[in-house]
Design a protein around this nucleic acid. Structure first.
Length: 105
DNA sequence: ATGGTGACTTGGC
DNA sequence: TGCCAAGCCACCA
Protein backbone atom coordinates (compact mmCIF):
# COMPACT_ATOMS: atom_id res chain seq x y z
CA UNK A 1 0.00 0.00 0.00
CA UNK A 2 2.73 2.43 -0.96
CA UNK A 3 1.42 5.91 -1.67
CA UNK A 4 2.75 6.79 -5.09
CA UNK A 5 1.46 10.36 -4.79
CA UNK A 6 3.45 12.79 -2.61
CA UNK A 7 1.54 14.35 0.26
CA UNK A 8 1.24 18.12 0.40
CA UNK A 9 3.75 18.10 3.24
CA UNK A 10 6.23 16.14 1.17
CA UNK A 11 5.82 18.67 -1.63
CA UNK A 12 6.86 21.43 0.75
CA UNK A 13 9.88 19.49 2.05
CA UNK A 14 10.91 18.71 -1.49
CA UNK A 15 10.67 22.35 -2.58
CA UNK A 16 12.56 23.49 0.51
CA UNK A 17 15.36 21.05 -0.19
CA UNK A 18 16.04 22.79 -3.49
CA UNK A 19 16.66 26.22 -1.98
CA UNK A 20 20.42 26.91 -2.28
CA UNK A 21 22.66 28.14 0.52
CA UNK A 22 23.11 31.91 0.47
CA UNK A 23 19.56 32.52 -0.78
CA UNK A 24 16.15 32.83 0.87
CA UNK A 25 12.50 32.35 -0.06
CA UNK A 26 9.32 33.62 1.57
CA UNK A 27 6.73 31.33 3.12
CA UNK A 28 4.31 32.12 0.35
CA UNK A 29 6.94 31.62 -2.32
CA UNK A 30 7.85 28.23 -0.92
CA UNK A 31 4.20 27.20 -0.95
CA UNK A 32 3.90 28.34 -4.55
CA UNK A 33 7.09 26.50 -5.52
CA UNK A 34 5.51 23.36 -4.10
CA UNK A 35 2.44 23.95 -6.22
CA UNK A 36 0.35 25.03 -3.23
CA UNK A 37 -0.28 28.78 -3.60
CA UNK A 38 -2.01 30.66 -0.80
CA UNK A 39 -0.74 28.47 1.99
CA UNK A 40 2.00 30.62 3.52
CA UNK A 41 0.65 30.28 7.06
CA UNK A 42 0.39 26.57 6.74
CA UNK A 43 4.02 26.37 5.61
CA UNK A 44 4.98 28.24 8.75
CA UNK A 45 3.21 25.84 11.06
CA UNK A 46 4.70 22.96 9.13
CA UNK A 47 8.24 24.24 9.63
CA UNK A 48 7.48 24.45 13.32
CA UNK A 49 6.99 20.70 13.38
CA UNK A 50 10.30 20.03 11.70
CA UNK A 51 12.52 17.91 13.98
CA UNK A 52 15.54 19.67 15.37
CA UNK A 53 17.95 17.29 13.70
CA UNK A 54 16.47 17.81 10.25
CA UNK A 55 18.91 18.66 7.50
CA UNK A 56 16.39 20.78 5.62
CA UNK A 57 17.30 24.50 5.29
CA UNK A 58 14.41 25.86 7.39
CA UNK A 59 16.48 28.98 8.12
CA UNK A 60 16.27 30.05 4.47
CA UNK A 61 12.57 30.81 4.83
CA UNK A 62 11.64 34.39 5.80
CA UNK A 63 8.68 36.76 5.48
CA UNK A 64 7.83 38.22 2.08
CA UNK A 65 9.36 41.59 3.04
CA UNK A 66 12.63 39.99 4.11
CA UNK A 67 12.04 39.95 7.85
CA UNK A 68 12.72 37.09 10.23
CA UNK A 69 9.41 35.64 11.37
CA UNK A 70 10.48 35.17 14.98
CA UNK A 71 10.42 37.83 17.68
CA UNK A 72 13.58 39.98 17.33
CA UNK A 73 15.54 39.00 20.44
CA UNK A 74 14.29 35.41 20.60
CA UNK A 75 16.77 32.57 20.59
CA UNK A 76 15.05 31.16 17.53
CA UNK A 77 15.60 34.39 15.62
CA UNK A 78 19.24 34.52 16.66
CA UNK A 79 19.84 30.95 15.54
CA UNK A 80 18.29 31.65 12.17
CA UNK A 81 20.26 34.84 11.67
CA UNK A 82 23.50 33.14 12.62
CA UNK A 83 22.91 30.33 10.16
CA UNK A 84 22.10 32.75 7.36
CA UNK A 85 25.19 34.84 8.06
CA UNK A 86 27.30 31.72 7.89
CA UNK A 87 26.03 31.39 4.33
CA UNK A 88 26.96 34.96 3.51
CA UNK A 89 23.54 36.55 3.78
CA UNK A 90 23.70 40.13 5.06
CA UNK A 91 21.07 40.93 7.67
CA UNK A 92 20.61 44.40 9.15
CA UNK A 93 17.98 45.09 11.77
CA UNK A 94 16.30 41.73 11.29
CA UNK A 95 15.83 42.52 7.65
CA UNK A 96 17.21 40.96 4.49
CA UNK A 97 17.46 42.64 1.11
CA UNK A 98 15.08 40.39 -0.80
CA UNK A 99 15.88 41.80 -4.23
CA UNK A 100 19.42 40.62 -3.57
CA UNK A 101 18.96 37.26 -1.84
CA UNK A 102 15.58 35.99 -2.96
CA UNK A 103 16.00 32.70 -4.76
CA UNK A 104 14.54 32.55 -8.27
CA UNK A 105 14.41 29.09 -9.90
C1' DA B 1 -20.07 21.84 12.25
C1' DT B 2 -17.92 25.92 14.31
C1' DG B 3 -14.99 29.25 15.86
C1' DG B 4 -10.19 30.36 17.22
C1' DT B 5 -5.25 30.21 15.90
C1' DG B 6 -1.07 31.04 13.41
C1' DA B 7 7.31 30.57 11.73
C1' DC B 8 1.90 34.72 6.44
C1' DT B 9 0.57 38.42 2.75
C1' DT B 10 -1.27 42.52 0.84
C1' DG B 11 -3.32 46.87 0.51
C1' DG B 12 -4.60 51.40 2.77
C1' DC B 13 -3.70 55.32 5.27
C1' DT C 1 8.42 53.89 7.16
C1' DG C 2 5.11 51.87 10.17
C1' DC C 3 0.80 50.20 12.02
C1' DC C 4 -3.77 48.00 10.99
C1' DA C 5 -7.41 45.51 9.03
C1' DA C 6 -8.66 41.89 5.91
C1' DG C 7 -7.82 38.07 3.38
C1' DC C 8 -6.13 33.60 3.44
C1' DC C 9 -6.27 28.38 4.48
C1' DA C 10 -5.23 24.14 7.10
C1' DC C 11 -5.43 22.56 11.73
C1' DC C 12 -7.44 21.70 16.17
C1' DA C 13 -10.48 21.68 20.35
Amino acid sequence: MTDSQPTTEQRIWQALSTVPAGTVVSYGQLAALAGLPGRARWVGSLLGKLPGDSRLPWHRVVKSQGQIAFAPASSAARRQIERLREEGVVITGHRINMSRYRWQP
